[in-house]
């Protein structure tokens, strides 16, 4: 299913970020894709099940949560999972494109959200540094 990707702050993202970005709570509150219930139904996924979001810039598996968005769009809290999908193109402004990206969403039956360690590995991949 084609969707528009929106990213931004939530209370849960802010509270869990202050507890620590390596905490389980941060993972649970930020590795989430908020879908409209009708879109989720069409995809065949329910609350807590895994979905894969893909843009031309990257792909991650997230936990589906119902509500809090419009039909045809997906909201992902700001953080490393959202930014695995966003564009570094700033069009001469310095500001990357973090909202309104075209994305594809699909169900991942039995899948698990991408972990922070997997993201860290993907960033280090090219150089093997750090």
């Amino acid at each position: 299913m084609e969707v528009l990707l929106n990213t931004g702050r939530t209370v849960d993202q802010g509270v869990s970020m202050e507890r620590g970005k390596t905490s389980q709570e941060y993972f649970e509150k930020v590795a989430v894709a908020f879908l409209h219930p009708e879109d989720a139904k069409e995809l065949g996924v329910g609350e807590g099940q895994a979905v894969r979001l893909t843009t031309e810039f990257g792909s991650v598996v997230l936990r589906c949560s119902l509500g809090n968005t419009e039909r045809g769009s997906v909201f992902v809290p700001m953080g490393p999972w959202a930014n695995a999908l966003t564009s570094a193109l700033t069009e001469g402004t310095g500001m990357p494109s973090l909202k309104g990206l075209r994305a594809k969403i699909e169900a991942v039956p039995g899948g698990k959200p991408t972990t922070l360690e997997e993201l860290l590995r993907s960033w280090r991949g090219r150089s093997g540094s750090a």
């Binding site: 620590g20 970005k21 490393p80 930014n83 695995a84 570094a88 960033w123 150089s127």
Partner: peptide
């Protein structure tokens, strides 16, 4: 590392980076 697009983070991970931060951050991990 937590808030930049991955293309920017990958280069940050490949160069010598100094982090001054009170807390463990994702950038500090790199």
């Amino acid at each position: 590392a937590a808030h930049f697009p991955a293309a920017a983070v990958r280069h940050l991970a490949s160069i010598p980076t100094v982090v001054i931060d009170p807390k463990v951050s994702l950038t500090s991990k790199l």
